[in-house]
Simulated scan of single mutants.
Amino acid sequence: MTTRTRRHARYPYSALPERPVFAWPNGRRLAVYVALNVETFSFGEGEGAGLAPKQAEPDVLNHAWREWGNRVGVWRMKDVFDALDLPLALLPNACVYENCPGLIEAFRARGDEIVAHGRTNAERQGTLSEAEERALIGEASDIFRRHEGGLPAGWLAPWISQSEVSIDLLKEAGYAYHLDWCHDDQPTWMATRDGGRILSVPYSHEINDIPAISARFTGPEAFADMIIAQFDEMLEASSKAPAVMSIALHPYITGQPYRLRALKRALSHIAAHRDRIWLTRPGEIAKAFAERG
């Protein structure tokens, strides 16, 4: 009797030691980027990360905690990125333009990449019908086009929630890459139903403050140590195989002063090695990888 597992057929298996060895720009082997998720939520309804167990709506405790990130935490984090001269990928929900005027614009002024992150994190696209999901992607895309003068190159789904056709819908909407799949340390071409392909750029679920701090209750110093250990190990290993390291952050979590203090230590460690790595953004990683063919 043969047991078979259901496969998605988006990409074939590829063992890391069997792949061609290449370098990122300037001969670097490790590309590093910081992703700052800026999210907005519906008051009195919908999804949302929790500081404490969810209460009956309106869940003021958790809603206000998340809103603090956009009013205070994100600006404290910006000061840190400015001081360390770190490039950034800003991943905002499209509704942030309306709900937090001036926020996205401040990061655009830094030259940061704007990566589309759905409409709002009060919803998950993976639970929708294909028509509803297409409408969500289309509405968010129109808002980004209107404010940014063009479609962002990349997409991260709210809650990293995808349906079986999300990859196809993103390609059809014009996106060049997405950050939803964390199955590799190198970018991966994924097949789409139109016979084309879309690039998956690594986005960490481990070096990510929501699962690390909100789900596993990792302390701020331990989270900083995780970032440093991840960086040191990946830098060493990249001599054999080029890689992408990402750090995923949310202002209402790591923007908290006592967590930010520890995060500064980790980011300073990485910045001190900038002459050995490619400090960049995911769109630049996608472009460099795509140019390889």
Rank of each mutant, 00 (worst) to 15 (best):
E236F: 14
A157V: 09
E233Y: 13
E172A: 15
Q162H: 12
H205A: 14
L199Q: 01
S141G: 14
Y175E: 02
P202G: 11
D194V: 02
H178T: 06
Q186N: 12
K240C: 12
A153D: 10
M190G: 03
T192V: 09
A224R: 00
A222R: 08
A241M: 13
H183A: 14
K240S: 15
D225A: 15
F231K: 02
I213R: 02
A222T: 13
P211S: 07
Q162V: 11
E221S: 12
F144K: 00
W155M: 05
D184F: 04
D194P: 00
W189P: 01
I213G: 00
F231C: 07
A224E: 02
H147T: 05
G154Q: 00
D180I: 05
Y175G: 04
F223D: 00
N208C: 15
D142M: 05
A241Q: 10
P187A: 08
H147A: 09
A153C: 14
A229P: 06
D184H: 08
P202I: 06
Q162N: 15
F223I: 07
L169D: 04
I207V: 15
S163R: 04
Y177V: 08
W159T: 02
Y177S: 04
G219Q: 07
I198F: 06
D209H: 00
S163H: 10
L151D: 06
I207D: 01
I160D: 01
Q186I: 15
N208R: 03
D209V: 05
D168F: 05
I207H: 03
G174W: 04
A212Q: 01
L169F: 11
A191P: 01
A173Y: 04
D185C: 08
D232R: 13
W189H: 08
T188R: 11
F223M: 06
G174D: 00
I167Q: 00
K171F: 12
G150P: 05
I160Y: 07
S200C: 13
W189A: 10
V201T: 00
A212C: 10
S214F: 09
S214R: 06
D232H: 09
S204H: 07
W189C: 09
T218V: 15
F223L: 10
G174E: 02
L199E: 04
R193P: 03
L156K: 00
G150F: 13
M234V: 08
S214C: 13
E206C: 13
Q230S: 15
K240H: 15
W189L: 12
A153V: 08
G149D: 09
A191Q: 03
H178Q: 14
P152H: 04
F217Y: 14
S214Y: 08
